[in-house]
Design a protein around this nucleic acid. Structure first.
Ligand SMILES: [Mn+2]
Ligand SMILES: [Mn+2]
Ligand SMILES: [Zn+2]
Ligand SMILES: [Zn+2]
Lengths: 137, 137
DNA sequence: ATATAAATTAGAATAACTCTAAACTAACTG
DNA sequence: CAGTTAGTTTAGAGTTATTCTAATTTATAT
């Protein structure tokens, strides 16, 4: 149950990021264990709960750096907060508008057919399907 | 070329909204002419340019009331601003991440197949496909 | 006309970020 | 190692889109 940081250290180094105490704690929460969908606030709360003092500015910095390096992907589903996804491969989401819960649509349960070409002079950068659901009565 | 408000007055009354000077001006900009994609700021600028004094708070109020009444639909594509669409029927969007341009994907050029059922205890409320494009370089 | 409920508004407040500039630290070099 | 330097963290201030508050105004009903 120990040597807990080796994997995460490598992951950060490969991304060209120094494995600092803060980034290690954040990366461990994000990448050790299954795929996750998080916001800056929830990640900040988790890292504090794990007794690592990290500022909110650093959480935002890390989320953006991880995203730029391809370790995370941003999912836009709510105009009031940014969500980040540790699963960077192409997949789609359920978003519960009442609870704010973001969850994956299992692969194969949805597919987009006959993708349109990008308008003239533009280049495609991603395709996202969001299936919105409600849980409140 | 006159009696310019009759259509819009009916539309507001049917939605249970009093046809005030402000709502008439906003509804005219929104619904007279083709389908539109707008933000609160752009609509506010337009209404001022048309020489009708309307506060930004009223623009936000109207956008939300129109949305609740089904005259508009909100499209979530950018975590920093809310877009509203005068076309409330089911259709999908291109979003240019460089310019902020939101445009419709022509009907038939895309389709989502094998829609998943909503997770247990949840009810489906919408399906949105966003095709992100870039125009810079 | 009056009354009443609904709507508008200025400006303050909020919330999610982003920025700045100073303090710290990881990594390199000899 | 000790010294240097570039990268990182941070507190707190700043920004921006949006919401709220409470006072004023207006639409509608009688
Ligand atoms: Mn924001
Ligand atoms: Mn916002
Ligand atoms: Zn996901
Ligand atoms: Zn549209």
């Amino acid at each position: 149950m120990d040597r807990p940081y080796t994997g995460v250290i490598e992951r950060l180094k490969n991304a060209g990021l120094r494995p600092t105490r803060q980034r290690l704690a954040l990366a461990k929460l994000l990448f050790d264990g299954g795929d996750r969908h998080i916001t800056a606030e929830t990640l900040h709360a988790e890292v504090l709960a794990a007794n690592v003092r990290v500022s909110l500015a650093t959480v935002y910095n890390a989320l953006h750096q991880f995203t730029r390096s391809g370790l995370l992907r941003e999912v836009v589903v709510d105009s009031s907060r940014a969500y980040f996804d540790t699963n960077t491969s192409g997949h789609h989401h359920f978003f519960d508008e009442d609870t704010g819960d973001l969850s994956d649509i299992p692969d194969g349960e949805i597919s987009v057919s006959s993708l349109p070409g990008a308008p003239a002079g533009k280049v495609l950068s991603g395709v996202e399907v969001v299936v919105r659901v409600r849980s409140q009565q």
